[in-house]
Simulated scan of single mutants.
Amino acid sequence: MNLHQAKLDIVEAGRRVYERGFVASNDGNISCRIEEDRILTTPTGMSKGFLKVEDLCITDMDGTLVSGQKRPSSEIGMHIFLYRERPDVRAVVHAHPPTATGFAVAGVPLTMCVLPEVIITLGAIPIVEYGTPGGPEISEPIRQYVKDYDAYLLENHGATTIGADVMNAYYKMETLEHFAKILFVAQQLGGYNELNAEQVEKLVAIRNRMGLRGPDPACDIPDAPTTQPTTNGGIPTIRTLSAGEQAGAETSQDDLIAEITRRVMEELK
């Protein structure tokens, strides 16, 4: 990979994550695997919105600094873990996009079958169990997901995306946060419609024709059409009502209408 272009891409991605509010202060980190044993990464303790190419540093696959004037990101270990586990990955973006991180804090994975573009380009986004940032604890919980997923919500922390190059990994972060925002708005409006198995299958076929990789299944396909919003830990979701629940709901509604009618008639006597 061209070193100069990789540096420009990291600086640009850093500017974008900062300007879009995906990070605050000195949060977040971005890296690119420029050689099999060399990682270009953002430094620790610097705002990603104001990076210059000379601020970036290069480490080996053990995280040891080999070039640059600044210390590498404290979370370089997570990046190296992802590169070791996924040889096809050439870039990693870690940020704290507010809406997606809200889902991570609430314990709600972004695995719903809702948006065609997300199913095709990214697929489900699981929640990874919490690990202390900056150390090996943050990496190990990702292991069970790393082979199948390109985006992860980090419990009580943020989000990480991986890709074929820096901008590819960055765009996945954009998609993740965009999906979270749309889903959050839909929940505030009472719930969301989920695509059925046949609809998802067609989208996966498109994904395959485009040569894109993604998890299988691409999302959590609902068992049946959903009809009534409910709540899950204070977060509105949609679920399928059983036949008994549907009958009970209809009976309850009829009884309520009958009772209201009776009382109105009594008042009119």
Results as ranks from 00 to 15, higher is better:
214 G>T: 05
212 L>G: 02
152 Y>I: 14
21 G>I: 03
85 E>I: 00
257 I>N: 07
187 Q>P: 01
18 Y>I: 10
156 N>C: 11
13 A>D: 14
141 P>R: 06
26 N>C: 09
42 T>D: 07
158 G>N: 10
116 P>M: 00
109 P>R: 14
8 L>H: 11
70 K>N: 12
17 V>I: 15
27 D>S: 06
198 E>Y: 08
208 N>L: 11
17 V>K: 09
228 Q>H: 14
86 R>A: 06
74 S>K: 13
114 V>M: 15
193 N>I: 14
146 V>Q: 09
6 A>H: 06
194 E>Q: 14
96 H>M: 11
253 Q>K: 11
31 S>G: 01
53 V>D: 15
196 N>H: 02
193 N>H: 15
181 K>Y: 13
269 K>R: 15
189 L>A: 12
37 D>S: 04
256 L>P: 05
17 V>M: 15
266 E>P: 14
152 Y>F: 15
75 E>S: 04
69 Q>K: 13
103 F>P: 12
145 Y>K: 10
197 A>M: 00
143 R>C: 09
240 T>D: 11
135 G>C: 15
13 A>W: 11
165 D>C: 11
52 K>F: 08
186 A>S: 10
147 K>R: 15
243 A>W: 13
134 G>C: 07
90 R>I: 01
157 H>A: 06
257 I>Y: 13
94 H>V: 03
125 I>S: 02
214 G>V: 07
